[in-house]
Design a protein around this nucleic acid. Structure first.
Length: 288
DNA sequence: CGAGTGCCCTGACAGC
DNA sequence: TGCTGTCAGGGCACTC
């Protein structure tokens, strides 16, 4: 099961569906296991790798997820937090390079956990359970996108709180958890909202459309993710079904699947942003 | 304190 | 072929 699935390069960016898939696989492996040792390898203690020594002799109670964070409550009051960043990989197989953390578990199947992270954007740390002050994005995170807490009333209220560009605001994780760069573009395209529209100026009738688009793209990609991972295990690379479903992301200068106009790429908040200038009119033009 | 900018980090890739 | 430069991006420190 754990063969080489996560060990090849060019893995997809870990977005919420992929983190959820990983969570589901970690759960039967790690739930109930006791951490015998926790060591940094090719990494230095700091905000991204904090307090791991406290993990020793604690039992992993469960494997949870909030947005793109993995949360592993331990039985003596601490919580192990893992964020995969761009390139983080959790595996029972030792990586050849860029190993950052090594956990020894009580004897049993796969008794070593390796955290590999090529680009060092990931995190692997311990905090007192629920104390997320050192992780401000997690502390201020909005509702889970596939939960009932993510509803039109809540979403509209959240959008009213910010004048920043809707794309930027979605990436902040504040109005809703787990929406990354790819899904933000896809959801905005589906709901015909310009990525630079100020959040508080998104038309009221479009708010439930955006909400549904977010739920749809995440649900569809969770469904496609299994396929992607299955393909991934047997074929070279991971250009699986999910990637083929993207309508605008990565399709700069190609025709919009909806209207045929040319998809444009701009940079918002330092992230590449893809949209159809015809389907996704700027707020002013919509209003006029 | 909200909003905006740049940094972290490495590998893939383009261009010469 | 091999070197150099550019790009990618989640989260956060920093600035105003």
């Amino acid at each position: 099961m754990w063969g080489g699935r996560f060990t090849k390069g060019r893995s997809a960016i870990p977005e919420l569906p992929e983190v959820e898939t990983i969570r589901r696989e970690l759960s039967p492996w790690l739930t109930g296991r006791i951490i015998l040792s926790a060591n940094l390898v090719d990494a230095s203690p700091g905000p991204k790798y904090a307090n791991l020594e406290r993990a020793v002799s604690q039992r992993i109670m469960t494997v949870k997820r909030r947005g793109k964070f993995l949360l592993l409550p331990l039985d003596k009051g601490d919580e192990l937090i893992v964020h995969l960043g761009m390139t983080g990989i959790i595996s029972p197989t030792a990586p050849k390079k860029h190993l950052r953390v090594k956990l020894e578990l009580n004897p049993g199947e796969n008794s070593t956990l390796y955290f590999q992270d090529t680009r060092r954007f990931g995190r692997f740390l311990l905090v007192p359970a629920g104390q997320y002050q050192s992780l401000p994005t997690l502390a201020a995170m909005g509702p889970e996108p596939l939960s009932k807490d993510f509803n039109p009333g809540q979403f509209q209220k959240a959008l009213q709180a910010s004048a920043t560009a809707i794309k930027t605001y979605l990436l902040s994780q504040k109005p809703v958890a787990g929406v990354g760069n790819i899904y933000a573009d896809e959801a905005l395209w589906r709901s015909r909202i310009h990525p630079l529209s100020p959040a508080k100026q998104v038309a009221k009738r479009q708010i439930p459309l955006l909400l549904n688009a977010i739920k749809e793209v995440l649900t569809e990609s969770i469904a496609a993710q299994g396929t992607t991972l299955n393909d991934y295990r047997t074929v070279n690379g991971d250009l699986g079904s999910f990637r083929n479903r993207l309508k605008v992301y990565g399709h700069e200068n190609e025709p919009c699947p909806n209207c045929g106009d040319v998809i444009e790429r701009i940079v918002i908040a330092g992230r590449s942003t893809h949209y159809c200038p015809r389907c996704q009119k700027a707020h002013k033009e919509v209003k006029r």
